[in-house]
Nucleic acid binder design. Sequence first.
DNA 1: CTGAAAGCGCTTACAG
DNA 2: CTGAAAGCGCTTACAG
Lengths: 369, 369
Amino acid sequence: MHNGLLGTKKTADHMKEKLTRQASSRALPTVSSISKLAGFSPSTVSRALKGDARISEKTRATIAAIAQEQGYAPNAYARSLVTQSSGLVGIVLDRLANPFYGELAEHLHKRLVEIGKYPMILRFDEGALETEEDVIQPILQYRMDGCIIASASLTSRVAEACARHRLPMVMINRVARAHSCAVSCNNYRGGIMVGELLVEAGHMRIAYVSGRQDTSTSEDRESGLRHALQKVGREPLGVVRGHYTYDGGYAAGRELLSRRKRPDAIFAANDITALGVIDAARNLGLSVPNDVSIVGFDDIQAARWHSYRLTTVAQPVDAMITRALALLAERMHNPELEGEDISIQGELRIRSSARLPTHMTATPLSGLE
Amino acid sequence: MHNGLLGTKKTADHMKEKLTRQASSRALPTVSSISKLAGFSPSTVSRALKGDARISEKTRATIAAIAQEQGYAPNAYARSLVTQSSGLVGIVLDRLANPFYGELAEHLHKRLVEIGKYPMILRFDEGALETEEDVIQPILQYRMDGCIIASASLTSRVAEACARHRLPMVMINRVARAHSCAVSCNNYRGGIMVGELLVEAGHMRIAYVSGRQDTSTSEDRESGLRHALQKVGREPLGVVRGHYTYDGGYAAGRELLSRRKRPDAIFAANDITALGVIDAARNLGLSVPNDVSIVGFDDIQAARWHSYRLTTVAQPVDAMITRALALLAERMHNPELEGEDISIQGELRIRSSARLPTHMTATPLSGLE
DNA sequence: CTGAAAGCGCTTACAG
DNA sequence: CTGAAAGCGCTTACAG
């Protein structure tokens, strides 16, 4: 085999490779490719594309037309590299066993998109192999502009990592520690509202189904309940853990309602737990609310379903998100700002899972509500 | 005001600006800063950090230690720019009114993280200001390595955009059009299974509550039902739209069950709709399943709740995701691959919302199931 | 085993 | 109003 042939073969291979490479790497239009097509410098193309006032309207139009025709989309990475802003905001969540977080995440998502940020959801799976690092690494590597933490587990460690890297962060449905920001529903006030409602309805044996261990949300709601009961010289009949899950609520309800001294009202730390309690009651042949009143916290979708029509405290999700995003925006602008701890009052939503005080009537049925 | 003063002021301002800039831009460690600290070239640092075999163990250890101590996290954007791979996979979803998609998204999320990809969720809000562009732009700008489409609306337009940009894409819970990939539950077979179950249980007046207009999922499930009924010389008593929502199911159930010729069984196009139908039945004073059997499709969490215990067809979500990710991975490796349309059989989950054929017994109650 | 150089696709002072 | 040049933080042939 002489050189000529070899040379030819190599060249052919090379060309073929180039071709497939070109095909498979689908060379996208760039500022540079557009600049050649348009006959302007890359600087001008870049400016024209982002509507810089200094570029003449004519030039702008020409360039815009070519970009459009080429299907140009700016490379976010190249841009982020120089602007030092990724446009990404991390949302840290637990597993979505509790629908409340799913609903919260959906609202958050929508609101972030509205202000031009892209949310990146980071979930932490307890029990899985994932570690704290697994959620912090993407936050760091993708240089998120900010971070919203709405998970119960490892909140503090992620928060601390954010602080260490001076990354703007705000917690939602959590209370602040150290110098961090947090916005939450006023859980204590909510607990009081529920306690007062039950007392006024004449309940004498009121029990509490708590959430996950050591979550301040559950503790604060319980404290509120206790406070309301103390005012009339009483205290909860019993407290059983419900783990913030349907199954947990079911088991807790079963236990409480099988006792000799059976509660005539149960306040569950959140809605999904309350639904479990309701079903436990019914499975024991008890009527809700005739035999036992049951109240939740959150106001998830399912709380409105006709099989439950759960009386509950609605978290002011919209207001919470508004405040959280405002805090975050401030801190993205000035990272040195102090932490703030905000709590917003929830609203009692009277449905039919709890007996009413004689002076109250249920919120009128409007359609399916 | 003379020059000196002006000059001083300008300088002071400038310094102040520099300081705050420095503070607020929290200079992160880079390959370059580490290379100086370690006394090696950036090339070596880069290789050491990613475990290139050519770097000596000693060098690697030195560099790793410094990186660790500095809290170094590689900049994903710089890396993406040169590797031409972002590590991001887009998940396109509708609003999460249907919990099935929330559960699907959670599983998908987990599985993607397991294979080292970061999911970015893109939701399309019907009725909101968002357009098709709003979901396509981030996919393009953030140069997603691939895309999973699990939304009913605008599926085809996003799919088309992906194709145009030669971006690997697979649809899930959808059927493929053109050259695209899709994996879904075998909805037709599922419909047949439900139809046969109801026929064998002796139901004579079987109605169908359909989903959203023009969704193949709903149509296929209905076709399956029709097929099973035709085999015994019958056809559905009526078909009413349920819009794939709880409220839609409730309204549809109310309508069907108020008719003079009342159905004795209703198959709803999905679970969330079926729950609405159940509640409508109960509100009309009917017993489920004594007066009317109700069957759903999906097997969402709430289908297991004791107030419903919904008989349904479980979508093989794990298997669907496995196949979808495999298809996607193949296409990320070779974008020229043909489209494939995969359907996996679902599984009938017998609970207690539907009467049983005499030869069958319900799946035994194990704990809360 | 290690390094110098080029380049990924943008933006942004600086200069004209 | 427009352009040349430098640089964001990496990786990767190429060379030794």
